[in-house]
Design a binder for these strands. Structure first.
Length: 423
RNA sequence: GGAGAAAUGGCAGAGUGGUCGAAUGCACCAGUCUUGAAAACUGGCGAGGGUCACACCUCCGGGGGUUCGAAUCCCUCUUUCUCCGCCA
């Protein structure tokens, strides 16, 4: 969420830039400013009343000590009125503060100046396209057919055990999954990210920290009994490492990577485009997360993009990079690059990574700060990206690498799989 | 799951109703000394709100209560430790 002080000082600019998201932010910004002013006014009143109360209490103490009980009791009577005031003002203050917070939760991040205007994914700006388009043979199949043909992914079995969207990987399919995870983690650690193994369930505070709560609880699986949520991405436990943390400046930058399964309810998704591996309730992903000095975060974003790009190149998959337009930009992001891989047999682009700079939007909620060179606490910037999400990478490998007598394994994965062909 | 103990600043650890945002030690920062460092000495050293800056207000695991006044008393929740049970 945005800082109130930032809104106070930049309201005009914010409203202007929000138009990129197709949002007229004027009314909500005005409301924030009004509530904020009222809140501060009440705070001042409350503080003054409390100060009076404190002085009075001290006096009473001193009077009792010096044996002037009568005088003390006289003063005591005066406190009841102050107490009443404190109580009512406090209540009003809480109401205003709550109202203010509720508004702040609803305001998305301010888009970076690079973000193009637009309504939907059709308006995203393609910044790069690279890799060779495969020439498939005539009897080429989409991955869900290949999965069946070579007996490597069993969607029906997943249906039986759990339900739709929980596929079972078998034999070389399972091995390929494991190989991809290991390969991604290796690439990420080579690039300087520290590997973490993170919990797959998180508590409510963590959900709030990264913004899944209070609004998007419908997207997560909720374990009612213990009030825990299954993570929709490693971003949630990974970023919450830094909740309520004050770093020293020389600890920056921080880069971590982790593999986790991801659980998403995907309520409302349906149809042919969710076929096979394209959209699942449980899938695997390797994530990269960075905590950066505000002056360095865009540099970091570029290096993350370059890193993901490098992996896709090594896998020799045709890909493109999109700079998301305002309409497609996620709530917390200031600038996002999506990576899409071409899935030859489906003849469509599949999103395999999304790399974002959240600036201080997340860290404000998380209270993730660092002590800057002036000795003051300043919000750090957070970034994250997939490096990479497995299912669609797997889908495109299966489809793009298929030949008439089997599916070849990308060169870089062979050391991890131990085989070079699925047949 | 049962029984008991505990939760205080970066860490350790005092503090059981007022003068406590909190002793002391360590760590850290700055200065003196030194060619430099160490040691010694001097000073500083939690966070949020508020202010031009002060003042002032809030925070001693979270929430609630008693009281003129709570780190200190009461209730409740959470977490940690010890013992028992269960267990990959």
């Amino acid at each position: 969420m945005l800082q109130v002080s930032y809104i106070r000082e930049n309201s005009e600019d914010i409203v202007k830039r929000m138009t990129v998201r197709n949002i007229d932010a004027q009314p909500i910004i005005d409301a924030v400013l009004t509530f904020d002013e009222q809140r501060r006014k009440l705070q001042t009143t409350l503080d003054a009343t409390k100060a009076e109360m404190n002085t009075l209490s001290k006096e009473i103490g001193n009077l009792f000590k010096s044996g002037q009980a009568e005088k003390a009791n006289e003063l005591k009577n005066k406190t009841s009125e102050l107490k009443e005031t404190i109580k009512t003002v406090e209540q009003q203050l809480n109401e205003k503060a709550d109202a203010l917070n509720e508004l702040l939760y609803k305001i998305p991040n301010v888009p970076n100046l690079l973000v193009p205007t637009g309504n939907s994914d059709e308006d995203n700006l393609e910044t790069l396209r690279d890799g060779k388009m495969p020439q498939l043979h005539d009897s080429a199949l989409p991955h869900w057919e290949l999965a069946k043909k070579y007996n490597i992914i069993d969607f029906e079995l997943g249906n039986k055990i759990t339900g739709a969207g929980f596929p079972v990987y078998k034999g070389k399919g399972a091995r390929l999954q494991r190989a991809l995870i290991a390969y991604f983690l290796d690439k990420n650690t080579e690039a300087g990210y520290t590997e973490y193994q993170l919990p797959h369930l998180v508590n409510e505070a963590s959900g709030f920290g990264t913004g899944q709560l209070p609004d998007k609880e419908g997207q997560m699986y909720h374990v009612m009994e213990d009030n825990l949520y299954l993570i929709p991405t490693a971003e949630v436990p990974g970023t919450n490492i830094f909740r309520d943390v004050i770093l020293s400046e020389n600890e920056l930058p921080i880069g971590i990577t982790g593999y986790t399964p991801c659980f998403r309810r995907e309520a409302g998704s349906y149809g042919a485009h969710v076929r096979g591996l394209n959209r699942l309730h449980q899938f695997d992903k390797v994530e990269i997360i960075r905590v950066e000095h505000p002056s360095k975060s865009y540099e970091a974003l570029d290096s993350m993009v370059a890193h993901v790009q490098d992996i896709l190149k090594e896998l020799e998959l045709p890909y493109r990079i999109l700079r998301l337009c305002g309409g497609d930009l996620t709530f917390a992001s200031a600038l996002t690059y999506d990576f899409e891989v071409f899935s030859a047999a489906q003849e469509r682009w599949l999103e395999v990574s999304s790399v974002s700079n959240f600036e201080s939007f997340q860290s404000n909620r998380l209270k993730l700060r660092f002590k800057n060179s002036d000795g003051k606490n300043e919000l750090a910037h957070t970034l994250n990206g997939s490096s990479l999400a497995l299912p669609r990478i797997l889908a495109s490998i299966l489809e793009n690498y298929q030949t008439e007598d089997g599916i070849k394994v990308p060169e870089v994965l062979i050391p991890y799989t131990g085989f070079d062909k699925i047949s």
